[in-house]
Simulated scan of single mutants.
Amino acid sequence: MQTYYGDLTTSNTRIPKERIVEAEEWHKTASLDWKEQRALNLIREALLAGRERYGAELKVVVSCSFGIDSMLTLHLVRRVSQELGISFDVVWNNTLNEYPQTRAYAKRMTEEWALNLIEARPTTTLRKIYEENGVDSLFKRKGDRSGGKGEKEPVVEKCCGALKHKPMKKAIKENGWHIMFNGVRAGESRQRWMSARRDGDLFYSSHTWKTWVCRPILWWTALSDSFNYGNNRQEDVWNYVRKHDMPYNEIYDMNAVIDDSYTGKDVVVDRVTAEYLVAKGYNVFMPRTGCMACPIPIKRGYLRYLRTTFPKVYRSMLFQLGFARVLIAEMPEDQRRELLDELNGFGIITEKTEEAVLDRLEDVIEWKPCVFDGVGVVKQRQKKSA
């Protein structure tokens, strides 16, 4: 298929919309082998165009969270860069709230793949952000503008801006990268799909990053995708990992079954088992890299996942960050009333108020650990099959 990337400049920043849609449609039915070849060709085209534009001054970077999508992208870029003899940096936006498994994996892969790693770090902390701004609704997503004109942005927006976007902009400015590769995929969310439709998989970011941005696996899919834009949702990502025997972050083998109908022995399962259970219709929380104690995935059952796998982080979210107060307030009224009646009946609290629950929260969690598991969770309506 024709790509039309050769016409791009820093003023003509994006290929025509119809060409973007054409690429999206092609990916919906293409095999993994064809997608892989197209991704390699795109990377090659971007690097050769960069060398033509910037010559020996060309500076290339792969943005890497040490999650599976960015590592897959890094694997693809390494293959092409070695072929062309073009070196590149790797930038890790280390929010300082990463899973311990991610930190260990980053150290290992930096050594094994001899990466020129640059860490972009924030100048503030997640806890300080919540102390300064308080906790608003935990169910507003990053980018939410529902507050209306004049109302403050959600705290998750402030958090991502301070811990991720600001450090990355600073790193790009200081290092002067001309091309940035990343592992963004359209199937991750509706917001990502809208961005994919707007920008395509290679464009010049004249507003945000002021550099060329290439997203080689933009239209690849995975079984765990939260948004289906009409694709076949085949398992491109993990099939590529297995095809090339790529080492991956241990966090991906720490999936938690958060389905009350599940009767299996192990609640925390590896990736293969998780994929099998999801295909059978069970609700399984499959973690991604990034900030621990982030409220964005709460709708997918993140609180239950943390309580099961990272209990210390779970308790920190409730007590140190103050999530408990908002969780109680955002319970459906009937559930909150039922909880207060239950706690009062068993003598855990003496008054049926939210303040009473907060005053005795340690006892409440001790008596009923699952108290917040279902708050805000979007229920899965899927049939279970043997």
Rank of each mutant, 00 (worst) to 15 (best):
M1E: 00
T3R: 02
D7A: 11
S11C: 01
N12Q: 10
T13R: 05
T13Q: 10
T13F: 00
R14A: 05
E24S: 04
H27Q: 02
D33E: 07
W34T: 01
Q37C: 03
L40W: 02
E52H: 11
E52R: 12
R53A: 09
K59S: 05
V60N: 12
V61W: 02
V61M: 03
F66V: 12
G67R: 11
I68E: 01
L72Q: 10
L72K: 00
T73L: 03
T73A: 04
H75Q: 03
H75I: 00
S81Y: 05
Q82W: 13
I86V: 13
S87A: 08
N97F: 05
A106Q: 07
W113K: 09
L115Q: 08
L117A: 08
I118R: 14
K128Q: 11
Y130I: 09
N133E: 12
K140P: 03
R145C: 06
K149W: 13
K149Q: 08
K152M: 10
C160L: 02
L163D: 04
L163K: 14
K166M: 09
K170R: 12
H178V: 04
R185D: 03
S189T: 13
Q191D: 12
M194F: 05
R198D: 04
D199E: 12
D199G: 03
D201F: 01
T208V: 07
K210V: 12
D225F: 08
D225Y: 04
F227A: 02
N232Q: 08
D236G: 00
R242I: 01
H244A: 01
D245K: 12
E250S: 14
M254Q: 10
S261F: 11
V272P: 09
A274M: 14
Y276C: 11
R288Y: 14
T289Q: 15
G290K: 15
P295R: 14
P297F: 09
R304I: 13
Y305N: 05
Y305D: 04
T308L: 15
F310R: 14
P311S: 13
Y314M: 08
R315I: 15
S316A: 06
L318Y: 07
F319Q: 07
V326M: 14
L327E: 12
L327V: 13
E330I: 14
R337G: 05
E338V: 11
L339N: 11
D341F: 06
L343M: 10
G347D: 07
G347T: 07
E355R: 12
A356R: 00
D359E: 07
I365Y: 13
E366K: 15
W367R: 02
C370M: 15
G376L: 11
V377N: 13
Q380C: 07
Q380G: 06
K383T: 07
A386N: 08
A386I: 05
